[in-house]
Computed example of a mutant assay.
Amino acid sequence: MSPRFLEDISAALAEHGLIPRGGFVFGAGEEAPPGRSGWPASSVLLVGQAGAAPWPHFSRWRERQPADLKDPLDTWSRVVIGQAGQKFGARAVSPSDRPWLPFQQWAMRAEGLKPSPLGILMHPEYGLWHAYRGALLFEIEIPIQEPRKVSHLCDACVGKPCMKSCPVDAYSPGGFAYEACLAHVRGANGEPCRTGGCLDRNACPAGAEYRYPADVQAFHMASFASPVR
């Protein structure tokens, strides 16, 4: 393994606006998903984004695809992370793979993060404006640093504006009212959410400099509100 192994992976991902999001070595006796050859993986490296950095790269790729392409962002992520897997000898996996892989548990373990009241993991720098697009499963142990201990910003937030901005109170201590949210976004009064993104998410002051632009938020909201195909 090259001494610059992780740096080389970072450089390859950076060409698409993506970044490594931490990882870990599976413990002895821990059930790990299969790697590239079918044997259990030894290590996992998560891949994701900070802010909307991948958007220009994705947009250029999207212009060359059929207009009716299903799940374009997921497809693009699979292509890009799959190429990295081929190059570095790993199996690329996606959060939408079936059977489901425990991406949120992996993310919390890899970066030491905790969920916000909205369910999105709160990052000390990026706030709620980040995402995990996939992961690379290696059958070797790769040199991953242990996650540093980070403060959970939500613990120090007294006002909880993220719980007070939704017109239909979709988020509450009882959980996410999916049907109410969906009906509102699709309805006559849902235009602010459709064009500018979730009001609760935008109300959080953390990581404001990484907030997705309105067109990116509108894309994600349209994906959320579109009928299941």
Results as ranks from 00 to 15, higher is better:
D8H: 09
I9T: 04
A12P: 06
L13V: 02
L13C: 07
E15K: 15
H16Y: 06
H16E: 08
L18T: 05
I19R: 15
P20R: 09
R21M: 09
G22P: 08
G23H: 10
G23W: 13
V25I: 12
G27I: 00
A28T: 07
A28D: 14
G29F: 09
E30P: 03
A32N: 07
A32V: 05
S37Y: 12
W39P: 05
W39A: 15
A41C: 10
A41G: 15
A41M: 09
A41H: 05
S43M: 10
L45H: 10
L45F: 12
L46F: 07
L46R: 07
Q49P: 03
Q49Y: 11
G51D: 14
A53V: 15
A53C: 13
W55A: 13
W55C: 06
H57A: 15
F58G: 10
R62Y: 09
R62S: 06
E63A: 12
Q65F: 00
P66S: 02
A67K: 13
K70I: 02
K70Q: 11
L73A: 07
L73D: 10
D74G: 03
T75C: 09
W76N: 08
S77P: 01
I81T: 00
G85S: 00
Q86H: 01
K87G: 00
K87E: 12
A90S: 02
A90P: 00
A90R: 01
V93E: 06
S94W: 12
S94F: 11
P95K: 14
P95S: 05
P95V: 06
D97V: 05
D97I: 03
D97C: 08
R98K: 09
P99I: 10
F103S: 06
Q104T: 11
Q105S: 12
A107P: 05
R109V: 05
E111V: 06
E111R: 14
